[in-house]
Amino acid sequence: MDLVTLKMYLVPLAEGSMWTLALFFASAFLAVALGLLVCLCRLSGAALPRKLAKLYIEIIRGTPLLLQLFFIYYGLPELGIVIDGFVAGVMGLTLNLGAYLAELFRSGIQSVDSGQYEAARALGLSRTQRLKNVVLPQALRTIFPALGNYALVLVKETSLVAVISVYELMRAGEMLAGATFQALTVYTLVGVIYFAMCSVVSWVFRRSENKLTVPGYWSGSGENNDLTKA
């Protein structure tokens, strides 16, 4: 394979990768915000937000992501709502992941011992301070490994937006394979790039876990855990 051919392969794949990363970061950021908001509604004392949050979570988890993307990109225009492909992709991924994260956050928040809330209340911390300084830091540690899972799933799920003609790594590979008739080579390359991206995400999460390690409370991804003991 000469340099010109190599360039012909790599340039579109690099460009596609940039868009994949853009989709990933935009959706990840927005989904965390949405998930936290929905989670707090789900745990709210008021009935309406709680019911709406439940309904949203059930609908999203009860339908395929592919359908949700089709609904936004092909369905909504019939109601006069036309959305750009990239934006529709971010919307779909965010709405989808947000529902799962909302439940993940809930599991983390509910795992925090009620004594922690009581101590924080007794010390005079406001609701927001309790959440931010006492509950969420502990909840985050509990859910961290699962959060890493969702991050990896998201990297790969960005490939689904190829079907609503968003240009990203999968779509770039598809077009390249069509143009060169070298499907095996192209999809191997695409696979290697996805694997590399996932490896980086995985590494970042492992490192962050270790940074969050607290002696005697939370061992992070360390090998020194209760399961390894004799």
């Binding site: 011992d113 922690q116 101590a119 007794a122 005079g124 502990q138």
Partner: peptide
Amino acid sequence: IEAIRADVGMVFQHFNLFPH
């Protein structure tokens, strides 16, 4: 209520220190 709580200290049976 936070202002009132600031004037009243409490110690619990199970300590309830913040582990993180």
